[in-house]
């Protein structure tokens, strides 16, 4: 593959076109996928809305109560209607975006960083370091994800911070295995041997030469895991173990809406749609990134 990129680069340079770098190659492939680009735009919009939420919400999400409009359906004054306590659902959804995005992003980022480091160490040194890391992964994998999270919440108590810690912990083994596998494949390649024969330290070899080779797989998993993590965090809140009332967390809002399904179905519809569209966007973005970066990465 290296030689073909080199050849096309020289061809392009000779014909006066721009040189193809891995980045331009990626952006060319990615831009062809309309759905993934749309999902990416949606994710960016969501992030903007989440950041700006405190300044753009029409009503305070937790302290504003309209007692004359309990369970009122959507209207111009309340775009998504009013919940059973008189709170504006639109404002709560916007503020909830902050919580869900932060939960998804922080937990997966923490899991990815720790997992990648462990995977690099395990794959590069093998031996006892590898055995220890893989054994820990086996144990973590032996618990279905949400069960591990429930166990951690049972110990540490409920609340969003603990949920994020729990989701981060069970993201670690996924990344560790992925990066370890890539590292094992990369470390015997010629360019790594060349670096070593030039006297590069282990640290330089791992960080400068092997890590970049594992990044594309990590990026794809990152996007796909965020969707899963948002669902897990919302599920725990739905079970009453995550965000506590009156926090406008989407899963907790759905749980609260269960008793009002007959009189006010909009209380459930909007949080459900919010979770669905957010997770869908991250999944479509992840699929697009995978197709653009490396079609061989399989989704697990």
């Amino acid at each position: 593959m290296g030689s073909s990129i080199l050849r096309s680069a020289t061809d392009d340079a000779a014909s006066g076109e721009r040189v193809r770098t891995p980045w331009s190659e990626f952006s060319r492939k990615f831009r062809r996928q309309k759905v993934a680009v749309a999902a990416g735009v949606f994710v960016v919009l969501l992030v903007v809305v989440a950041v700006a939420a405190p300044w753009i919400v029409p009503y305070n999400a937790e302290t504003y109560f309209d007692y004359d409009a309990l369970n009122a359906p959507p209207s111009l004054a309340h775009l998504f209607g009013v919940d059973s306590l008189g709170r504006d659902i639109f404002s709560r959804i916007l503020m909830g975006a902050r919580i869900s995005l932060a939960a998804g992003f922080i937990s997966v980022a923490a899991g990815a960083v720790i997992g990648t480091l462990l995977g690099l160490v395990a794959g590069y040194y093998e031996g006892w370091a590898d055995r220890i890391v893989m054994r820990i992964c086996d144990v973590l994998f032996a618990f279905p994800g949400i069960l591990l999270a429930i166990g951690i919440v049972a110990i540490l108590g409920g609340g969003m911070a603990n949920v994020i810690a729990a989701v981060a912990i069970f993201s670690v083994p996924t990344f560790a295995r992925l990066v370890r596998g890539n590292t094992l494949g990369l470390k015997h390649l010629t360019f790594v041997e060349a670096a070593r024969s030039l006297g590069a330290s282990d640290r330089t070899i791992v960080l400068r030469h092997i890590l970049p080779g594992t990044i594309s797989a990590v990026v794809v998993y990152f996007s796909l895991r965020i969707g899963t993590s948002i669902i897990t965090a919302a599920s725990l809140s739905f079970l009453g173990m995550g965000a506590q009332p009156p926090t406008p967390e989407w899963g907790a809002m759905l749980d609260a809406a269960r008793s009002d399904m007959l009189v006010a179905p909009h209380e459930a519809i909007f949080p459900a749609l919010a979770i669905f569209l957010t997770v869908l966007a991250f999944n479509l973005l992840g699929d697009g990134l995978r197709d653009a970066l490396d079609p061989k990465i399989e989704r697990v």
Binding site: G227, S235, L254, A268
Partner: peptide, 21 residues
Amino acid sequence: VSGISFPAFALGMVLMQVFAV
């Protein structure tokens, strides 16, 4: 892709409302 993006508890609530209630 919709199936992996729709949380189970929300799907359960929708199905229950439509087909049972």
